[in-house]
């Protein structure tokens, strides 16, 4: 269980996160919604243990999170890989970093789940499509079986159709593997389709946190309402008689 407790982070004299509290159970998905500058990247860096908070703490099952224990899927799939290494080498890097052996069965099972041909991973990042690169990014995050994976705008570099397909693959593999997923995104459609919990972050504070069904039916904060309205206006969500 991920617990973020009254987290306050100050950067350059400004509070970029103020009193942020969140929790996330294993196997569940929490979507943190917010505009750029709301503090989403700082939240990610804090959970990864890259930033020391002013006060408050981040823990997993009551213990502080060790560096490298949490995996991250980044926004720009190709930029997330060393362009000179084969994908296979990059993907298995988390295992080497922690001194774990490569489990062939698990590797091929994950590849199948993400619809990645194992042969494809012999190539380098610029020799495959962006969609494939992002699935390889997810594979790297999964390979060492971390209890928690962070997704930083994981779909925004992809086409509308590829986004939906990738999101479904991730959800299916999450049901098998049981990791907790913290997704930072400004795409409400994605959050509505794949997250059980929603937190709205604005100017470093949690404006609203709720179950996804409750939030999308009836957002409480005015900012939550304008997010939902904007998503409807941009066709990411649709009202339709049930």
């Amino acid at each position: 269980m991920l617990t973020v407790e009254r987290l306050t982070v100050r950067r350059g004299g400004r509070e970029v996160l103020r009193d942020v509290s969140l929790s996330l159970a294993p196997g569940k998905t929490l979507a943190v919604l917010g505009e750029s500058g709301a503090g989403k990247s700082t939240l990610i860096a804090s959970v990864l243990g890259l930033i020391n908070p002013e006060h408050g703490m981040v823990s997993w099952d009551g213990r502080p999170i060790a560096r490298g224990a949490v995996a991250l899927v980044m926004q720009e799939p190709r930029a997330a890989f060393n362009s000179r290494l084969t994908l296979r080498r990059s993907v298995c890097e988390p295992l080497r970093a922690r001194g774990l052996p490569e489990d062939q069965d698990r590797f091929f099972r994950l590849c199948r789940g993400l619809e990645l041909e194992p042969d494809l991973l012999a190539r380098r990042p610029n020799q495959i499509s962006i969609g494939q690169a992002q699935r390889a990014g997810v594979l790297r995050a999964l390979i060492a079986a971390p209890p928690l994976i962070l997704f930083d705008e994981p779909l925004s570099a992809l086409d509308a159709a590829t986004q939906k397909h990738t999101a479904r693959l991730i959800s299916a593999i999450q049901r098998e593997e049981g990791f907790a997923a913290l997704i930072v995104t400004h795409d409400l459609g994605y959050a509505a389709a794949h997250a059980e919990n929603i937190a709205v972050l604005r100017e470093g504070r949690i404006e609203e946190a709720a179950d996804a069904d409750v939030f999308f039916r009836n957002p409480q904060s005015s900012y939550g309402q304008s997010l939902v309205n904007a998503a409807v206006a941009l066709g990411a969500l649709e009202h339709r008689a049930a």
């Binding site: 994605y190 649709e238 009202h239 049930a242």
Partner: peptide, 14 residues
Amino acid sequence: QSLVAHRNWAVLPC
């Protein structure tokens, strides 16, 4: 057809 099939993420109840 493929675009239409992947049009929406989710449909909200009214």
